[in-house]
Simulated scan of single mutants.
Amino acid sequence: MPTAVEPRGTAALLVNQRGEYLLHLRDAHKKICDPGTWSVPGGAREGTETLDEAIARELKEETGLTIADLCRFTVVECTGPDGITKGHIQVYLGHWDGDASALPVTEGIMFHHFAASSTEQLTMSPWAADVIAQHQAHTAVHRLSAAPTAAAPAPGGQTVLNVIGVHLYLERDGTVLLGLRHPDSAYAGSTHHFLAGHCEQESAVACLIREAREEAGLRIEADDVEFVHAVHLIDEPGTQPRLQMVFRARRWEGRPEVREPDKCVSWDWWPVGALPEPVVPYTRAAIEGIRAGRLYTEMGWT
């Protein structure tokens, strides 16, 4: 799910020339997120640190490394031992070809390089597995095309990948389906929003169908889905751009029900001309665009 504010967490996906990922085996007997799993190095911001400063410090503390080519790659949700989302993590991408066994182990158990195919056999942190899947998909796209994909230039010559969000627009008798976010949600607490999610290693329509089932118990067929709007936005200069794609389902099966109560507390139908307050700003902008027959909106760009 997109984040309204900068994430507190950071992580670094480091890849060597063979395409292997540097993974960190986490402590199994500590009250931490994803204990006993393989993950990637990183940690939370401290004080007034920026995300860039935090990941540089965490890498130095955990691995002794300074990686010069780090760039922002994606944002993922972190789930705690109780299965509840604890927050979001800004993941960076970089390259390192050293000996993992020679790294100092100041936290956790060990470091090791793994090929992507090997990670399927590991007990992986769910969000770290998601990051590797995203990187594999991104790499596959680049193999097929020499053109850069979904990227925007950033200060200092870095490349910032755009996060792709997928959203469901359901309309019934002049009303639209919106969910009320949980007050403790890391994103848009106590605010109304579309049913939505991040694309994983799947098409946008496949993501929409999966999220509709997981979040609200709705069954949607791909042939009943049509694209109706996109919002390309940035929260503020220097933050990660996001492309929010909105699809309408002409038909569906089931009644909306709360399937993820830690994220959403209710699903309700609201008149499209009298939306509730508060609503996520780009959700409102998308609905207004759909009603006006527009396919595209920009927000936050200067």
Rank of each mutant, 00 (worst) to 15 (best):
R248K: 08
A249S: 00
I287Q: 06
E171D: 01
F111I: 00
A196R: 14
D268N: 10
R57P: 05
P41V: 07
D173C: 13
E253C: 15
E200C: 12
V231C: 14
A102R: 15
A11N: 11
A216L: 01
V176K: 09
T119G: 08
H135I: 02
E61I: 00
Y169S: 12
V105T: 01
D99C: 06
T302L: 12
T123K: 10
D173E: 15
G293I: 08
S118P: 01
R210H: 04
I220K: 10
G217V: 05
L13P: 01
L65Q: 14
S185P: 05
E62S: 07
G47T: 01
Q244E: 12
H142A: 15
K30H: 09
R18K: 11
D82N: 15
R143H: 03
K31F: 10
A116Y: 12
L295S: 14
T302Y: 15
K86W: 03
R250T: 04
V225L: 03
T85S: 06
A115P: 13
P126L: 01
L25K: 13
E214P: 10
C199Y: 07
E62F: 13
A154E: 07
S203I: 00
P81R: 09
F114G: 09
A230F: 06
V280E: 04
K30R: 15
P271S: 05
E236R: 12
E257A: 13
G94T: 04
G80Y: 08
S203P: 00
G217W: 03
R294H: 03
T66L: 13
D69T: 15
D224G: 02
I55A: 11
R18Y: 06
F73I: 06
F111T: 02
E6R: 13
A116V: 13
H193N: 14
R291P: 02
A133H: 04
A11V: 02
W267N: 02
P281Y: 09
R8N: 13
H138R: 15
W270K: 10
T85W: 03
G94S: 08
Q17S: 14
T149P: 08
A222I: 07
F227W: 14
C71N: 11
E202V: 00
F194I: 07
E62R: 14
